[in-house]
Design a protein around this nucleic acid. Structure first.
Lengths: 346, 346
DNA sequence: TTGTAAGCGTTATCAC
DNA sequence: GTGATAACGCTTACAA
């Protein structure tokens, strides 16, 4: 690991001239350049990125903080940001919040202390006010979940609309007792989806009983428990709206044993291949990642331009067979079976 | 963003004293400490990580370069490294190689230039000789795939043994024409697994025809094409060994329409829920990540200790129903159906 | 065209 | 116990 000074000594020039040659500054005599280039090669010079970054005062990297890297949605999102960043000679710094609201602030602040060029965050805490102090220095863009107690750019999916659509889809299939399964109403996206579900019920003059809401379905065991509670109701629900893909995945084992009609928010790998295939509200993590990344780049390049803070991306319904099984109750509603692929996770 | 100098000015001490207070150096008078702490709070001092890192000459971060972040195996691996790193006050720098052998070297070298504390890599190129120059400065650990043309620590799964087991499992079910489906024999893991498959056939005196080997099954379309070729054979194979989870996932749609017995290398989310449920060779990305991360930490803390370079992790067979369907050909072999969960992706 | 000096923010060294 | 000084490697501003 030789430094510019060492190269300079070999080439018998000053460090500055080495810098000029290395950075293709035209103001160097061809013969000098040649001598320096020989020295660069000889010493196998590699710039010290730490020094360059420190000097520049800004790390050419976009930070990405997500609840869980293993969630295909966030993995795809991070990957998309990475591709965009690479086009702008930036790297990405992916950090896992480990689904722990308490750890969010320390983890994110550790990230921000690195003088990042930008931060993309899908928060899990209930309050991101702590980010206000950083926003003046670092462009911050929220994804998937809108910011709480701090104004900031955000690109979110239409939680309410998607949940409304999914619920109405079940209603149109003749269902009257539709359950809601989710992780926690403390999570804004889940709350928004709950409201969408609720509004759909209300709009169709269907009662919304609290007993129909089951939460905590984070893994297979807990999903089974939550689901058992719903099945024990008198009468049990005939349909279910699942508020996110993770819960849906956890639900698959019990679902295959039942007759329930199900829709879920968020596609997942193999959603079209399990039994029954899930009718889903389709999110687009790649698009979210691209838009968020582009906003960071724009904010860096044009700090004074005005931008729309709130950006809600439309979501679509991908109909599969998971709500077919009750069509026989109401033959008048024959849904269309599409063969859309769940290609998110390649 | 105030600096130590500014804090020092307010507290009427030198920058060094601020540094001492901030870093809990005991050699500070209580009253001085108090004054400095007040100033720290007043100016809301936050250290500049860039400067500290530059000064230290070493970035407290472990780089992780994987073929594809969206692959659940690598996502889980990266997550595990991240958890370990956090325990040692390090962060992780995840980089996606985008499955492109050409881009590996530039991407990885950009990563290494940052004076990382260590690098964990699952390479996709055919030659990692370029890493030799870096290894003296940065501990490098290979995962999933052994290094080519450079000596380095590596933690890999037992590709050959796993493939042998999976193939033998099919043979034990009475199959004689067993096909091999994979991505590319250029990939060392795939090649190792191919050898394992081949050796199992040979050991059982079964012929291994080239026509039974189908490659390029990277996505659903190409998997369908590759599979169609196999089906068109006279006679067609009665069983299939799939060399990795990604190909297996791509194969699911066509597989549900067939009668083939299938085993695959690498579990994947929902592998136990699709039809038929896949019998898989189970890898353990979390364990690989933990071991690799720990090796980096060990190498940093004890540079002179000796370590075992080559570490092959055993893999196990998780039997599910995907090779049941031919049991009726040979009723004597009734496999046990386990209900093991594919809980990798949480 | 080339070189000198200075500084980014922090910390180790060595005075006092 | 505290502070002045220098240094990490690079690049900007300014001179020569």
């Amino acid at each position: 690991m030789s430094t510019m000074r060492e190269v300079a000594a070999v080439a018998k020039v000053s460090a500055k001239t080495v810098s000029r040659v290395f950075n293709n500054d035209p103001h160097v005599l061809p013969e000098t350049r040649e001598r320096v280039e020989a020295a660069l090669r000889e010493l196998n010079y590699v710039p010290n990125t730490l020094a360059t970054t420190f000097r520049a005062g800004r790390y050419p990297a976009i930070g990405i903080a997500v609840p869980d890297l293993v969630d295909p949605f966030f993995a795809a999102l991070a990957k998309a940001v990475g591709q965009l960043a690479a086009q702008h000679n930036m790297s990405i710094l992916v950090t896992n919040l480990h689904d722990d609201p308490e750890r969010e602030q320390p983890i994110v602040e550790a990230l921000l202390r690195q003088s990042l060029s930008g931060l993309i965050i899908a928060p899990i805490s209930h309050d991101q006010a702590y980010l206000a102090a950083w926003a003046s220095r670092t462009p911050i863009v929220f994804v998937d979940r809108a910011p709480t107690k701090v104004p900031a750019d955000h690109f979110v999916e239409d939680d309410h609309g998607g949940a409304y659509t999914a619920t109405e889809h079940l209603i149109n299939h003749g269902h009257q007792r539709i359950a809601f399964l989710g992780d926690s109403l403390d999570i804004p996206t889940t709350r928004n989806r709950y409201h969408g579900y609720n509004d759909a019920l209300r709009h169709h003059q269907l009662p919304n009983h609290d007993e129909l809401v089951a939460l905590g379905a984070m893994d297979r065991d807990r999903a089974a428990t939550a689901f058992a509670q719903l099945e024990a109701l008198q009468p049990p629900p005939s349909a279910l709206f699942c508020s996110n893909a993770r819960c849906a995945m956890a639900l698959v084992p019990v679902l295959s044993r039942t007759e329930l009609a199900v829709t879920t928010f968020g596609d997942f790998p193999m959603a079209d291949m399990v039994t029954p295939a899930f009718t889903v509200i389709d999110q687009n993590p790649v698009r979210v990642g691209q838009l968020a990344g582009q906003r960071i780049i724009d904010r860096i390049q044009h700090p004074n331009r005005r931008y729309r803070r709130r950006n809600v991306l439309p979501v679509g319904l991908i109909e599969r067979e998971s709500c077919l099984n009750t069509a026989r109750l109401h033959p008048s509603h024959q849904p269309t079976l599409t063969t859309a692929h769940s290609s998110k996770a390649g």
